[in-house]
Amino acid sequence: MIAIVDYGVGNLKSVYKALEKLGFEAIITSKEEEINQSKAIILPGVGAFKDAMDHLIESGLIDCLKKNVKEGKPILGICLGMQLFYEKSYEDGAWNGLGLLEGEVVRFEDQLKVPHMGWNDLIEGVKDEIGKDINGEYVYFVHSYYVKPKRKEEVLFWTNYGIEVPAVIRKDNIFGMQFHPEKSGETGMRLLKNFGELIK
């Protein structure tokens, strides 16, 4: 069972439907017991960083998520969900994130069109099982802020938008995708499948 965390923001159904289509059991939940019982967690996210953090705090799930991550359960943050893993974001202010990964979330420079929106290709960084057969394929990005990770060795794929942008990250059991795999056609489905297969 994969728990998709419902904390009041984001497009949860698309992720759920994509997992269902791939044959994975999934549940959209905001209940601590269900997250604890799951074999993997997905933290989705569409929206603004502060709003999402506020919702996470209100939901009372932060300790639960941290505990599950510490125990080694695979967790995948999608788009804003990935950004929330980091220490700090400068989206319309300066806000603390979950601090599971080291690095910051910053805005694209002004000479670029913001948001970075559309299909961009994945350039392999560190080889990893989750990215097998993916190099060079296109996935769908929609974001105005991007992660500046402290360690490049945590980046499995980059994408190029004037600058190098981390697209898929991994540190042990923590995974992040800056794009929307559930909206990235066949390539996105394969990445979700690779994540889901970690628990089999």
Partner: peptide, 9 residues
């Protein structure tokens, strides 16, 4: 709506 859901949507 931009504040609540993010500009990108």
């Amino acid at each position: 709506s931009a504040l609540k859901f993010g500009r990108q949507c």
